[in-house]
Amino acid sequence: MTETTRQPQGTVPEQAAMIRARGLQKRYGAARGEGFTAVAGIDFEVRPGEAFGILGANGAGKSSTMRMIACTSPSTGGSLDVLGLDARTEGARIRARIGVVPQDDTVDVELTVRENLLIYGRYFGLPKAEIRRRATELLDFARLTDKADERVEALSGGMRRRLTIARALINEPEIVLLDEPTTGLDPQARHLLWERLFQLKDDGITLILTTHYMDEAEQLCDRLVVMDGGLIVTEGSPGGLIERYCTREVLELRFGPGEREAMTDKARGLVERIEELPDRILLYTDEGEATLAAAHARGVVPLTALTRRASLEDVFLTLTGRSLVD
């Protein structure tokens, strides 16, 4: 606990961090020789009350990291403290104080909505009367009061996800872990879920979430890390990362068949960075309209031109590449 020399910029005092990982590693199948390294040594800290995002493509190591924080999967190297407790030895004590929303809804389909909450509270050893009181409040919070006595089988995807979140709150957790909370939900269900997550944030609960959706990360996260190949490739606030890795705007130009290469050559030099994609080119610029006018002046005639604000998605693709990883 005296290690202060390695702290990257923006760290918090030792006691204040909700989670602190140092050189954290996860290797699978190491015992049998042919191993696979999911997390290759990462450092990060999560501060009280913040919404912290872990972004990355499939296989980047997000879920493994989440499972280690949740103390359901032991780390194989480095150190991990959650709520000031060592995740390797204090797993049950840590789990008693956190809430976990897994990627797949693992609610009990044989039980009613309310029973799901009642039995989950018992796993924390809470007294029954107290669980009943909390369950009623959480059903209201999750907008499931009308469905309280229905079997879970009858719920929609969005309702199931909200039940999973309500369930994760039964122990009044200090940290809530959400693994891809809105994957597979329709837009209405997503927005309702985001609104509920903002409510949790307002109540001072620390949120840690993984997501594939950059708009979700931009909306919800105060700070995030991007993972690639088991390592953290960058860390910052959504706005800060866009500023660091991107320009303010992106100009997207599409051309007619066969014209792209010639037009791209003409456009070269207009801005510092041009990205060529199979169907269009991206010009990273601070003034999209001005760049478009300059392009027109050079005789660049696109089929369509679109100026948009640079997003976290641009940062993500810049950092992790565009090729498909599965």
Partner: peptide
């Protein structure tokens, strides 16, 4: 009251039995 300041959730009870009793309760409920 639910989401506000943390009230310790008497985890010791669950830790002692490893939760075997809660598992029986779950099955009874089903």
């Amino acid at each position: 009251a639910v989401l506000g300041p943390h009230v310790s959730a008497r985890p010791e009870l669950a830790l002692r039995s490893g939760g075997a009793l809660a598992m029986v309760e779950r099955n009874l409920m089903i």
